[in-house]
């Protein structure tokens, strides 16, 4: 582990986040890829010592690199690939439907957010009731 490697991981995260926050699905996919690399790199370098390949019979086991983070990172690489594959299929579908890959705002959510008070609130109901009662009381 060194400052340099930590810095590389940080740059990968920064670029990945930047791309993830974009509106284009293709950029988001690339961002996911970069974040995946960053994760693997952190896993590797924070996981354990560097050394020779952990293959029994090739040398002294004491000099082996840590095998467990490698196994985890291997899993992570494959899963990142699976996600990329699925997102690419989504991008393909998006192109089929809209000829583009922009991630639009959710129309339903926008509608809810901008919805004015369509229905009378129950509080209004009671308030009107109370006002009417007070009016009757005055008479």
């Amino acid at each position: 582990m060194s400052v340099l490697v930590a810095f590389v991981a940080a740059v990968l995260v920064g670029c990945g986040t930047w791309l993830l926050l974009q509106r284009r699905l293709s950029r988001i996919i690339i961002g996911v890829g970069l974040l995946g690399h960053a994760g693997n790199m952190l896993l590797m370098v924070s996981g354990g010592r560097r050394g020779t390949a952990p293959l029994i019979g090739t040398g002294d086991p004491a000099g082996f690199s840590d095998p467990l983070p490698q196994a985890l990172a291997l899993t992570a690489i494959v899963i990142t690939f699976g996600i990329t594959l699925f997102l690419l299929a989504l991008g393909f579908r998006s192109w089929q439907l809209t000829n583009d890959d922009v991630v639009e705002d959710d129309v339903e959510d926008r509608f809810i957010a901008r919805q004015q008070r369509v229905d009378r609130d129950i509080a209004d109901e009671i308030l009107a009731e109370a006002a009417q009662a007070a009016e009757e009381d005055r008479r």
Partner: peptide
């Protein structure tokens, strides 16, 4: 805004990586 958040995420990971360095050893 995007730039700020990205840089913040990067800095956070940088600090985290340095702190966690060699924690397994």
């Amino acid at each position: 805004i995007r730039l700020t958040v990205s840089v913040a995420a990067a800095v956070s990971v940088f600090v985290l990586a340095l702190v966690a360095a060699g924690s397994r050893d």
